[in-house]
């Protein structure tokens, strides 16, 4: 296999996992809202009802988060896949570089959505999110640091540096989702 082809496949597969993990993080939000809603029925119907119905509906701040975050995630996934397909056929370095940096635009929108939801949700929700972010960032940061040390100590050649680096973000999202579920258990919805 050509080195170029292999590297873009690695890139796309790892970025797809990133998108998947981002999806998990946002789904976690839906689950969180569902948990508060007291609605009954099958999950898709429940989700729709939670999103739309009166006083038991998902709060406006979380609806806005989903409205802003999910399209940005979708745009990011589309741009990453487009890069995967187009990178091989584009010879111009400038154009290839543009294809690489283009997904940064929806990432800015994702950051904006996350900052706005943290800022505008209520104080307990903010506390839960910030505790979960603290746990997830420390766990991921020190986890990868220890993993790097372990690789150095054991002289293991199994993991390529770029693949290890690409997995940092998915691990952060996943650990955030799990940490949030764990922290939320302290404050049951009643």
């Amino acid at each position: 296999m050509r080195q170029g082809a292999r590297s873009w496949q690695d890139y796309v597969s790892c970025q797809a996992s990133l998108t998947f993990s981002t999806g998990i993080a946002s789904l976690e939000y839906v689950k969180f809202a569902l948990h508060q809603s007291d609605t009954r029925g099958a999950v898709p119907r429940k989700m729709l009802r939670t999103y739309t119905s009166g006083s038991r509906a998902m709060r406006k701040v979380h609806k806005r988060y989903l409205r802003e975050f999910l399209p940005a995630t979708f745009a990011y996934a589309v741009l990453i896949v487009a890069y995967g397909f187009l990178a091989r056929s584009v010879d111009s370095v400038l154009l290839r570089s543009l294809l690489v940096v283009l997904p940064l635009a929806p990432i800015v929108l994702m950051i904006r959505a996350m900052v706005r939801v943290i800022r505008d949700q209520d104080e307990l929700e903010r506390r839960i999110d910030l505790e979960a972010i603290a746990i997830a960032s420390m766990l991921t940061g020190f986890g990868f640091f220890s993993f790097g040390m372990l690789l150095g100590a054991s002289n293991w050649q199994g993991a390529q540096a770029n693949v290890v680096a690409i997995w940092v973000l998915p691990c952060l999202f996943l650990s955030f989702g799990l940490a949030k579920i764990w922290v939320s258990r302290r404050y049951p919805p009643g």
């Binding site: 209520d122 307990l124 506390r127 404050y187 919805p189």
Partner: peptide
């Protein structure tokens, strides 16, 4: 209901329940 109070205060029902059960002291 907790949901009605939460709506009037513009907070989540989880927050109202946490305050009522003493698990969270409001700002």
């Amino acid at each position: 209901s907790q949901a009605e109070l939460a709506e009037r205060l513009d907070v989540s029902r989880q927050t109202v329940n946490a305050i009522e059960t003493g698990k969270y002291d409001p700002s």
